[in-house]
């Protein structure tokens, strides 16, 4: 039986440099490198003037102040024109009273969408799925989330993901399931038998040599 799995060779990979781009946005022409030094959440939505996307944009806009505190910039994208984006952003402000503070890429030729594998032909050949790419201040792709067209994203989960990644970078730890700031974190497992022996005496909350937690 043929079980070949089709892999898009252009698909981005975690812990590799995020694909570089230059694109027209609602904030002018921007390059990925313009965000250097900040964390970036690059996210795509299927189309302007659609209901689920509108709820997401309102949610992302409401999340923006918390992200700013964490040094994170947002950048949206869809296969729509700049004019469509501008009209939609103005509509959101008029109807919902929410100002969209972040740029939106007008990716009409799908250049960026293709680089990042945002189009899922099984869902739609003309729209980007609900993708999220977390890029760190050095331009390394640190996390990816893909949601289908029908399901709006949970922005609190995206904030939790940012907190977890930043805690990992700052403290050299990992985070357990459902972790949130203030919870105990995972101490990376020892890599040698000597370190495993030492770990048992290290004073962490240790269930076994490979499973230790601590408070930050």
């Amino acid at each position: 039986m043929d079980t070949a799995i089709a892999v898009n060779p252009g698909f981005p990979r975690l812990n590799q440099p995020a694909p570089a781009f230059e694109a027209e946005t609602t904030h002018g022409t921007l390059r990925l490198e313009d965000f250097q030094g900040s964390w970036v959440i690059l996210f795509s939505h299927p189309a302007d003037f659609t209901p689920v996307c509108t709820t997401e944009f309102v949610a992302f806009a409401e999340l923006a102040p918390e992200l700013k505190k964490r040094g994170v910039e947002l950048c949206g994208l869809s296969i729509d024109s700049t004019y469509s984006h501008i009209a939609w952003v103005r509509n959101i402000e008029q109807i919902f009273g929410v100002k969209i503070p972040f740029p939106i890429i007008a990716d009409l030729n799908k250049d960026v969408a293709t680089l990042y594998g945002m189009v899922m032909p099984g869902e739609s050949k003309t729209e980007t799925s609900r993708c999220v790419f977390v890029i760190d201040p050095k331009g390394i792709l640190r996390a990816m989330i893909y949601y289908p067209l029908t399901t709006g994203r949970n922005t609190q989960e995206i904030l939790r993901l940012i907190d977890a990644l930043q805690a990992t970078d700052k403290h050299g730890i990992a985070t357990p399931a459902n972790w949130k700031p203030g919870d105990k974190v995972i101490v990376p497992p020892p890599r040698t038998t000597e370190d495993a022996e030492e770990r048992m005496r290290a004073g962490y909350e240790t269930a076994d040599w490979y499973f230790s937690k601590k408070t930050l």
């Binding site: 904030h27 002018g28 022409t29 921007l30 390059r31 313009d34 965000f35 900040s38 910039e73």
Partner: peptide, 12 residues
């Protein structure tokens, strides 16, 4: 103005 936007605008 955010730094990313300054970079793009100054380039122009």
């Amino acid at each position: 103005v955010p730094l990313y936007r300054i970079r793009g605008a100054v380039r122009e």
